[in-house]
Design a binder for these strands. Structure first.
Length: 280
DNA sequence: CAATATACCTGGATGC
DNA sequence: TGCATCCAGGTATATT
């Protein structure tokens, strides 16, 4: 489900419900997520703690506790977070539940269990930054996401540009949907080897990329104003996707038929008119 | 080093 | 209706 915009929309929706609240109880399912549930650390560092704020890095949510501990949540493919009235029936695939001091609960639901929950104790949370820095690439909304940096990262590789955009070690937060959308907006064929891309085209990727991600966050934000009893449907469904999922339909820009192909095992959509593959 | 394959899971859509 | 098959927005690890 979630790429950077959906995670950011989740963060924005959750924040007013969580900031300043004390966690009065923690429960979990017996199922293993991507990693085992850190039961001991949840009891030790999250239960009875006070949430100060929520940050985001790539597709990770960082729920920060007073004193410095951090609850890190990744939504995987199907993970959702929502706020619910405290005595209310749980749902199938609820895997973590934080009871709050206002008779509400935040619940993590994830049918495929590709999501993850980790706890960083206060005395280790300082390493979180370097951990992320080591494993994750450029944030699309940071100043480092610029044409010069992308050009430098790309010049020695022949990776298809879609794989480049989706590689979280290079660029953080762009997933399968937005990769297709950004490349369409930038006029680049998904298979274009990155070392063939010029500075000006990278500038297009930067500009259109930010615009698309921002627009998606805004679209989600408008319907997510109330996150209570979140059905898990942040508003991104209303997003107007221009190529993703539109194989065999006309391109909204030029009318040519949008093609679907598979790249690195992932559905990939592009318009052969707007996104020509450069020839030798 | 780079590209691909596979593994982790459930559920919805599709086809017979 | 039942059953098999394929597909899904992510990531880590193994293998060519």
């Amino acid at each position: 489900m979630p790429e950077l915009p959906e995670v950011e929309v989740t963060r924005l929706g959750l924040l007013p419900h969580l900031a300043g609240r004390r966690v009065t109880g923690v429960r979990w399912s017996n199922r293993r997520l991507r990693r085992p549930m850190p039961r001991r650390l949840l009891r030790e560092w999250i239960e009875n703690g006070v949430i100060t704020t929520i940050d985001r890095r790539a597709k990770y949510l960082l729920v920060r506790m007073q004193g410095g501990a951090v609850l890190v949540v990744h939504l995987g493919m199907t993970g959702r977070l929502g706020i619910f009235a405290a005595p209310s029936p749980g749902a199938r695939h609820d895997h973590l539940c934080l009871r709050l001091d206002n008779d509400r609960e935040v619940r993590f639901n994830d049918s495929r269990r590709f999501g993850s929950i980790t706890v960083w104790p206060a005395d280790e949370a300082g390493r979180l930054e370097e951990e992320f820095a080591a494993g994750l690439g450029i944030e699309p909304f940071s100043e480092h996401f610029n044409a010069a940096n992308l050009l430098a990262l790309a010049e020695k590789r022949r990776l298809p540009v879609k794989s480049f955009l989706m590689d979280s070690r290079i660029i953080a937060g762009i997933g399968n949907i937005y990769a297709s959308e950004i490349l369409h907006a930038a006029g680049l064929h998904p298979l274009t080897p990155v070392n063939r891309i010029h500075r000006q085209q990278w500038q297009q990727v930067v500009t259109t990329g930010r615009a698309i991600l921002e627009e998606a966050i805004r679209a989600g934000g408008s319907t997510i104003a109330d996150f209570l009893d979140a059905s898990g449907q942040p508003g991104y469904f209303q997003l107007r996707l221009r190529v993703y999922g539109r194989g065999d339909l006309p391109c909204p820009d030029c009318g040519r038929i949008i093609e679907k192909t598979v790249l690195a095992g992932r559905a990939t959509f592009f318009c052969p008119g707007c996104q020509p593959l450069p020839r030798e």
